[in-house]
Deep mutational scan, measured.
Amino acid sequence: NLYFQGLKYMVPGARVTRGLDWKWRDQDGSPQGEGTVTGELHNGWIDVTWDAGGSNSYRMGAEGKFDLKLAP
């Protein structure tokens, strides 16, 4: 699974964008943008601060869902 392989790169400072299971509307800005991981992966959740200004926790394994992917 590509998403599980990418988890080791989901570290503080990593750049991310919305992924396969995104369901959080425009939390990442409008139009959709990139963000920066600000915390360690914990119980399948990870913290992100978006360039647009907001921050929140997103699923990276929790509930079998992956809200994020590494930015290109």
Rank of each mutant, 00 (worst) to 15 (best):
N1V: 11
N1E: 14
N1K: 10
L2M: 14
L2K: 14
L2Q: 15
L2N: 15
Y3P: 14
Y3E: 15
Y3R: 11
Y3Q: 15
Y3T: 14
F4E: 15
F4C: 15
F4I: 12
Q5R: 11
G6S: 14
G6C: 15
G6A: 15
L7Q: 09
L7S: 09
L7Y: 09
L7A: 09
L7H: 09
K8Q: 13
K8Y: 09
K8R: 10
K8C: 15
K8N: 10
K8A: 12
Y9E: 10
Y9M: 10
Y9K: 09
Y9R: 09
M10Q: 03
V11I: 13
V11P: 05
V11M: 09
V11Q: 09
G13D: 01
G13R: 04
G13K: 03
G13Q: 04
G13M: 05
A14Y: 04
A14P: 01
R15S: 02
R15I: 03
R15K: 08
R15T: 02
R15G: 01
V16H: 01
V16S: 00
V16Q: 00
V16N: 00
V16M: 01
V16I: 05
T17H: 07
T17R: 13
T17G: 07
T17N: 07
T17I: 15
T17V: 15
R18C: 06
R18S: 03
R18W: 06
G19K: 06
G19V: 07
G19Q: 05
G19Y: 06
G19D: 04
G19C: 09
L20H: 13
L20M: 13
L20Y: 12
L20K: 13
D21G: 05
D21W: 06
D21V: 05
W22P: 03
W22N: 03
W22V: 04
W22C: 06
W22T: 03
K23H: 07
K23D: 10
K23F: 06
K23L: 07
W24L: 05
W24R: 04
W24Y: 10
R25I: 10
R25H: 14
R25P: 08
R25G: 15
D26W: 06
D26F: 08
Q27G: 07
Q27V: 06
Q27M: 06
D28K: 04
D28I: 05
G29I: 05
G29S: 06
G29H: 05
G29Q: 06
G29N: 06
G29Y: 05
S30R: 12
S30A: 11
S30Y: 12
S30L: 13
S30G: 15
P31V: 08
P31M: 08
Q32C: 15
Q32Y: 11
Q32T: 10
G33K: 07
G33W: 06
G33S: 12
G33L: 07
G33H: 06
E34D: 08
E34G: 10
E34F: 14
E34M: 14
E34K: 12
G35P: 01
G35C: 02
G35S: 02
G35A: 01
T36H: 04
V37C: 08
V37I: 14
V37G: 00
T38V: 13
T38H: 07
T38K: 08
G39T: 11
G39E: 05
G39C: 11
G39N: 09
G39I: 05
G39K: 09
G39A: 09
G39Q: 06
G39R: 10
E40M: 12
E40R: 12
L41Q: 07
L41R: 08
H42G: 07
H42C: 15
H42S: 11
H42R: 14
N43K: 10
N43M: 12
N43C: 15
N43I: 06
N43Y: 10
G44W: 05
G44S: 02
W45C: 05
W45A: 01
I46K: 01
I46M: 07
I46E: 00
I46Y: 02
D47A: 14
D47I: 13
D47R: 15
D47E: 15
D47T: 14
V48K: 00
V48C: 02
V48F: 01
V48H: 00
T49V: 12
T49H: 10
T49A: 10
W50T: 01
W50R: 00
W50E: 00
W50V: 00
A52L: 08
A52D: 08
A52S: 12
G53V: 01
G53M: 03
G54C: 14
G54E: 10
G54W: 08
G54T: 10
S55D: 07
S55R: 13
S55Y: 11
S55P: 02
N56K: 07
N56T: 04
N56H: 14
N56W: 13
N56Y: 15
N56L: 05
S57V: 11
S57D: 03
S57G: 07
S57T: 12
S57Q: 11
S57A: 12
S57M: 12
Y58Q: 03
Y58F: 03
Y58T: 01
Y58I: 02
Y58V: 04
R59S: 03
R59M: 02
M60Y: 10
M60H: 05
M60F: 09
M60C: 09
M60E: 01
M60D: 00
M60N: 03
G61H: 01
G61P: 02
G61V: 02
A62G: 06
A62S: 08
A62Y: 14
A62H: 11
A62E: 03
E63A: 09
E63C: 15
E63Q: 13
E63R: 08
E63V: 04
G64P: 00
G64A: 07
K65R: 09
K65Y: 07
K65G: 05
F66Y: 11
F66D: 01
F66T: 04
F66A: 03
F66G: 01
D67R: 01
D67M: 03
D67G: 01
D67H: 02
L68T: 00
L68D: 00
L68Q: 01
L68P: 02
L68N: 00
L68E: 01
K69Q: 13
K69I: 11
K69W: 12
L70H: 07
L70M: 10
L70K: 05
A71I: 13
A71R: 08
A71L: 12
A71V: 14
P72H: 13
P72L: 11
P72Q: 13
P72D: 13
